[in-house]
Design a protein around this nucleic acid. Structure first.
Lengths: 262, 262
DNA sequence: CAGTGGTCTAGACCACTGC
DNA sequence: CAGTGGTCTAGACCACTGG
């Protein structure tokens, strides 16, 4: 007995082996996919779904949690459950660290976001000397201590990325690299001024679900994975001069790379 | 009152604002992080947790579903809830399509897996002529019809990747590219023989939670995202000659790229 | 204030596993 | 068979939102 305004949702199939909460999730998912609920639209309330399907509230909530896990919907306490809006995506091109982009006064993030018409912010800046993790130490060739530069990036007020750069201490201590604002062109420009002409970068990419601390820092909705990117910068002598460990909200990014065919 | 064998789990804090199911999830997560439950270990059963914490079963299940969503544990019906084993990771290097790798008789996937000591398989091979999606059409320069080659890759029996290659029909029809086995070096070698010398590839990477069909095809545990990779191959004349759309189990891959500094 | 989602209980029955 | 997780009910009280 459909009692919902639009009649977009069907009935349950009692003969089906498929669990009731899955059937409900299927119907909601299909309605979303077909655009019957658009981005940002409010789904029927739990109470409405309970009445429409004639099931208990826990069953309805179970359905909704399935969709939440898929990243299709977000719930807002006291308001309702909504089709998750797709945030604007930031495209990272493979030439984003080309030398010509380092000439300007601002960091790559700021320049790029400005160009895209977004309002970029950087906060939570922290600069510390510390003992590197096993992984970072290995990538940097085994320094006993490193300079760590941590910062969070926001786009139009929304946190999208949390990054930490590690540099061997003997290389960075007492230089502008250890300053909150390293100056025009960022730390890569400073590294080159210090005689470490950059040759290439290596990036390693993984995707996984966020740890609770990452959910907090990046204000992630449930059902949103993170992209974990570790970049190592090499100078022309083959020395690893920086490791940058970045955790990105996966729904805010698309990474682009160019590969040689030769 | 701890009643569990090992005493690895503490008590609830009734004065805390934190929901009970979150406190339980926190304690289990911490125990896992600290190695008190190792990879593949069985967690206490729901009944044991109910008795240990003195809460209802739904509360315990709620805790466990939090950890499942984080990809930390997997449940097996009739057996228990286990710390999710980390599968071996396949590293995709940025030179994986270099011409020198195309000389051998087998596909890149097979060669690489063999070298890593894994047992590779390819199945679900399907070759069809079809009308391209808007996105694929745009990337290929607007062909009306394309040849689609679909296949699934497995490592030691576990599905890890599902890929579809799209090629303009005028280019692929009637050639070995339209055959189930395109021959040594794969379709890239055939493209070059047909006069399309490859110049470079562009790859776009996203991460997201899988759709239900992807969960099925890749037999994904809950809490495992997918990496969505779209690669376009360009010949020396700048023509896009192939688009390969790939969905990978994120816990089975790390992607590596090299970027120029110039 | 009414309506929404968030948490929790105390049961029930079922399906799957392994002995 | 006993033990496990999977599904579902019918309530309860709470916290948050908006008018």
């Amino acid at each position: 007995m459909p009692v919902l305004p639009s009649g977009v949702l069907g009935a349950l199939d009692p003969t089906s082996d498929r669990a009731v909460f899955r059937q409900i999730a299927d119907q909601l998912r299909e309605a979303i996919d077909k655009g019957k609920f658009a981005e940002g639209d409010k789904l029927p309330s739990e109470t409405e779904l309970v009445e429409h399907y004639g099931v208990s509230r826990m069953t309805v909530r179970n359905s909704l949690s399935v969709l939440q896990g898929e990243g299709l919907v977000v719930s807002e306490h006291g308001k309702g459950v909504f089709v998750r809006p797709r945030p604007p995506v930031r495209r990272l091109a493979s030439d984003r660290f080309a030398r010509r982009h380092r000439e300007q006064g601002k960091s790559a993030f700021i320049v790029e976001a400005d160009a895209a018409g977004s309002h970029p912010t950087v906060d939570s800046l922290e600069i510390k000397e510390e003992r590197p993790s096993q992984d970072v130490a290995t990538r940097l060739g085994g320094p006993r201590r490193v300079l760590a530069r941590r910062r969070r990036y926001l786009l139009d007020g929304r946190p999208v990325e949390f990054a930490t750069s590690y540099l061997p201490l003997d290389l960075a201590r007492g230089t502008p690299i250890a300053e909150p604002n390293p100056g025009p062109g960022g730390i890569y420009a400073r590294l080159e001024e210090l005689g470490h002409r950059l040759d290439h970068f290596e990036e390693e990419i993984r995707a996984r679900m966020p740890a609770p601390s990452e959910v907090k820092t990046l204000q992630l909705a449930s059902g949103v994975p993170v992209i974990h990117l570790v970049r190592t910068a090499f100078d022309t002598e083959g020395r690893a001069v920086e490791v940058c460990d970045t955790v990105m909200a996966a729904d805010a990014y698309v990474l682009a790379y160019q590969l040689p065919a030769t």
